[in-house]
Design a protein around this nucleic acid. Sequence first.
DNA 1: TTGTGTTTTATTGCCTCC
DNA 2: GGAGGCAATAAAACACAA
Length: 222
Amino acid sequence: MCDDRHKSFIMEVEDMLITSKNSKNKRRFNDEQIKFLETMFEAKSRPELQMKQQLATRLGLQPRQVAIWFQNRRARSKSKQIEQEYTALKIKYENLASKFESSKKENQALLIQLQRLQQLNQKTCDEEECENKNCMPIREGGLEQEQAYEHNDHMPFYCDNNEKGDYLEEEDAQFISMGHVATQGASSSDENMSHFVFSQFLEPSRCKFECWDYNFDNQNDA
DNA sequence: TTGTGTTTTATTGCCTCC
DNA sequence: GGAGGCAATAAAACACAA
């Protein structure tokens, strides 16, 4: 029992002495050794045992040192690669963020334009066609009005042209309200949304109102 | 010269594969 | 179970500003 402890102690001391000796002799590899190791690494980053031994002999190093050098070299290579990937991703992200910001601005400008057109349309309808007929309410007035209109009956009216069957149908009302949804939801799809609103909402085929055409004509004339 | 940060060599412990 | 790889870390060597 005591013998075992004694042997174990001696082995520990020997290890410490070896470690101490190694630490004392710790020297950086010279330029030639590094150059050769780098060349080998380029060819093969995970050399086999035999190759490590040959390298060690050629460079006057221990095979263990060569093995450790390759291990550390792989670690450096990996961290460098991660760093490069991070940089590339960062650049991509910055480009995307920049595009997003410009799309957001463009979308806001288009929505303002949409609101103006809606107001113009409403005004024309009020003046020329509505005259307290059965008009269908739709939401307008921008974001700040959205909550206020939520539960009351005092919404502005668009013309109905009831006699001609030109009701503002539910589908259209939903469609128009999407402009507000787009305004509220400043998301990555803003660009698509603004395109959607303008390409479809303002598309002549969807417009069932004479006043709508009228406004377009006026806009075009101006 | 010295304190401090970085790089390089080496160790340790854990994991996977055969 | 042993060999080898990897991540984390220690420690020596080195670089450099003050």
